[in-house]
Structures are given as C-alpha cells and as structure tokens.
Simulated assay, not measured.
Amino acid sequence: MKKNVSSQTMDAALQTFLGNKPSTETLNPDTQPADTQEQQGKSNETVQEQAGEAVPEQTDETPQVVRRISGKQRRASLEEYKEAFLTVPAIEDRKPVFLSRSTRDALDRIVRMFGGRRMSVSGLVENIARQHLDTYGEDIEAWRKL
C-alpha cells in the first residue's frame, strides 16, 4: 500500500531527515550583528578552503536573488535521486555492515518513502558506496601514493 504524498511533503521530510529544517523566515544579512556576520564569513571560508574550492567573494552590495524551485524541478531531482540511489542493485558475496540505530532508521524511512517494492537499506547503502567510489576512486588511488 503506497501513500500518495505531495512533492512539498516529500521535500520537507527529506530536508528534516538531512537535518536541514527549512526556516519559515529568512534573515537579512544587514539585520544580523556584525560579529555574527564575521563568524559566518570565517566559517564559510574555512569550509570552502577545506573542500578545496575557490569561490569568489561578492564585492558589491547587490542583494542575491533567491530563486524558487518549481514542483517540476523537485520531481526531476527526486527522479534523479531515485535513479542514482534507489535502484535495486545486484549484490553478490554479501558481507555485513554495521550502522547506528538512528542512521539505520533514517535510511529505512527513505527506502520506505521513495524506494520500490524490492528496495532495501542494504541496497541503498550499496548504491551510496558505489557512487562514492565512482566519484572519489581516482583521487583515493592518488592519495594512496602520497
């Protein structure tokens, strides 16, 4: 029995799961205390430096426009997510992997909400691990040689 859930509800559930609870109001940077803005600027720079990304700073005072995401775009991104992570993988020579209860429960919610009938948490973890290895495999080999 599959529930018919709106894309807005699914997005909210996914955001809650990821720990990114959508705020009901957006703070204007001008209304924040100066030391808070300075701390946020430093933490953003640190995160960007750690990620190895060079992001140009905004030097002018023009406000950034926040664009709304349409329902069609959300559905498309959900389909991309399903295709990447919620397809049933063929797993041979299985080995156990241990997860904390909270992580297991969170992954189980995703599989129940968005996965197909034969999808499991093990399949989701397998897909996540494969995606990670595809993305970082060459870098890992280069780092191993350092």
Rank of each mutant, 00 (worst) to 15 (best):
L146K: 06
K82D: 04
R117V: 07
A51W: 01
V66W: 04
K21N: 12
R94A: 06
G19N: 09
A90D: 11
V111A: 12
S70R: 11
E79W: 02
V55F: 02
P29W: 03
P63T: 13
K2H: 14
Q39N: 10
I140N: 14
G116T: 13
S6E: 08
Q73W: 09
K72R: 11
R117D: 14
T9A: 12
Y136D: 06
T59H: 15
K3Q: 04
E83K: 06
V5F: 03
S120L: 07
E79H: 06
D11F: 07
Y81A: 10
L27A: 10
S70I: 08
P89S: 04
G71Y: 06
A76L: 13
G19C: 05
R101P: 14
Q8E: 12
S120G: 15
D108R: 00
N20C: 03
E92H: 10
E138W: 10
A106N: 15
T24D: 13
T103K: 00
D11R: 06
E61L: 05
I128S: 12
P56N: 00
T135C: 06
S122H: 13
F98G: 09
G137H: 11
V55M: 01
T26G: 05
R68N: 14
S120R: 02
Y81Q: 02
V88A: 15
S77V: 05
T103A: 03
Y136W: 13
T36P: 04
R117E: 14
N20G: 03
F98R: 13
R118P: 05
L86I: 01
E138N: 14
V55R: 01
R118D: 11
S23F: 04
D93W: 05
L99T: 02
E25N: 14
Q40D: 06
I140V: 12
Q15C: 13
A54M: 12
D11P: 06
E38D: 10
D93E: 05
P63H: 15
A84H: 08
R75E: 00
V111G: 05
S77H: 10
Y136T: 11
A13R: 01
V65Q: 07
P22M: 01
V88I: 01
K82C: 12
R101A: 09
T46V: 11
T62A: 11
T59M: 04
D105F: 00
E79G: 04
T36M: 07
T46M: 05
V47Q: 14
